[in-house]
């Protein structure tokens, strides 16, 4: 571990000569944290979690009084990073910033992960995405009812852009079941990644796209939202929620839930350290200056707290495990 202490996070800054005041809060040596804290990001540089971790890090390290070191461990749908994180000691010196849903459930349900979803404890998941059914402007489709009618008549009449083995796919199938649409007849066009799926949707390459809605915010003037898979309207989209369309008891899976987590075992092994981390994240997430800075980068800081965050991930896991057949290749 000592090797990592030698790496200041802001080395790039010093090199440029553009000095940024480094955190200089001095604490008594014995108090936690007494050394830099690693933040595992189980994705490559440039993705949402990486940007979130790097954007919040300067504030969080001010609050904690120790530098944060971002460690990218991308690959295999976050399985490699999650496994790596679990192999680190639960001493509070390694925390994680990840898309806990859907990747933890996917790792466990489809990839023989060596951990359980409950081995992770999310302190806060500020970013909560949702599947959105969307079409490009000018395709002629204007409402979800139209999609239902056309698919009921001929399930293959519309091409649907979607990621395989995803929460979006589970949502599509639940939607099909709710409206008597033939699952097997659906004309799925599969994309690896949300970005390509959205591009194909916005370009009208596919008739309808089923993919995380927040990524569409930047493309808002090019697409027509048809329905959001959540319990109410989201992000100002002029589209009904699934509960309005398929009934109040409609089944659906929540979208990506991204944010900050620790080893679940940390709560027992070092409750004091857990308190330090959790309160630092809470105070930073509620700081108006931080909220403003992150909003400028399209990053969420909403505080939901550990209880709500973990409950939501558990629920996602339960729904996904009921539909595990949909998650294993299509």
């Amino acid at each position: 571990m000592s090797n990592m202490t030698r790496r200041g996070v802001l080395k790039g800054a010093t090199a440029l000569g553009a000095m940024i005041a480094a955190p200089t809060v001095l604490r008594a040596q014995a108090a936690y944290p007494s050394q830099p804290i690693n933040v595992v990001v189980p994705f490559d540089t440039g993705g949402y979690n990486d940007r979130l971790a790097r954007a919040l890090a300067p504030y969080l390290q001010d609050a904690l009084g120790q530098p944060l070191i971002i460690v990218n461990r991308g690959g295999a749908g976050a399985l490699l990073g999650h496994t790596y994180f679990m192999q680190q000691p639960d001493d509070g010196y390694t925390i994680i910033c990840t898309s806990a849903a859907p990747f933890l459930p996917l790792n466990v349900l489809t990839q023989n992960a060596s951990f359980d979803v409950s081995d992770f404890h999310m302190i806060n998941t500020p970013s909560r995405d949702y599947t959105m059914m969307t079409t490009a402007n000018g395709t002629g489709i204007t409402s979800v009812q139209e999609v239902i009618d056309r698919l009921k008549e001929d399930a293959g009449s519309l091409s649907i852009g979607i990621q395989p083995a995803s929460a979006d796919l589970v949502n599509l199938m639940l939607f099909a079941d709710a409206h008597g649409i033939d699952r097997a007849g659906l004309r799925l066009v599969t994309y690896s990644g949300g970005g390509p799926t959205r591009n194909a949707t916005a370009g009208a390459v596919v008739d309808v796209g089923m993919v995380g809605g927040q990524g569409f915010l930047r493309l808002a003037d090019q697409v027509t939202p048809l329905m959001v898979f959540d319990s109410g309207p989201r992000d100002g989209w002029e589209a009904p929620a699934v509960v309005d369309v398929s009934g109040a008891d409609a089944q659906f899976v929540a979208g990506s839930q991204r944010g900050w987590g620790v080893h679940a075992s940390l709560l027992a092994s070092h409750p004091d350290r857990y308190e330090v981390i959790a309160s630092a994240i809470e105070s930073v997430s509620k700081d108006p200056a931080v909220i403003a800075a992150l909003q400028e980068q399209d990053l969420a800081t909403d505080w939901h707290g550990p209880e709500a965050s973990n409950r939501s991930i558990r629920q996602t896991f339960e729904v996904m495990s009921r539909h595990v057949d949909l998650l294993q290749g299509s």
Partner: peptide, 19 residues
């Protein structure tokens, strides 16, 4: 690795070959 339709081939069980 895993192809666009979600099928996994040729990884010889090595997790990082999924990508």
């Amino acid at each position: 690795g895993m192809n666009t339709a979600g099928y996994v081939r040729g990884t010889m069980g090595v997790p990082w070959l999924l990508d």
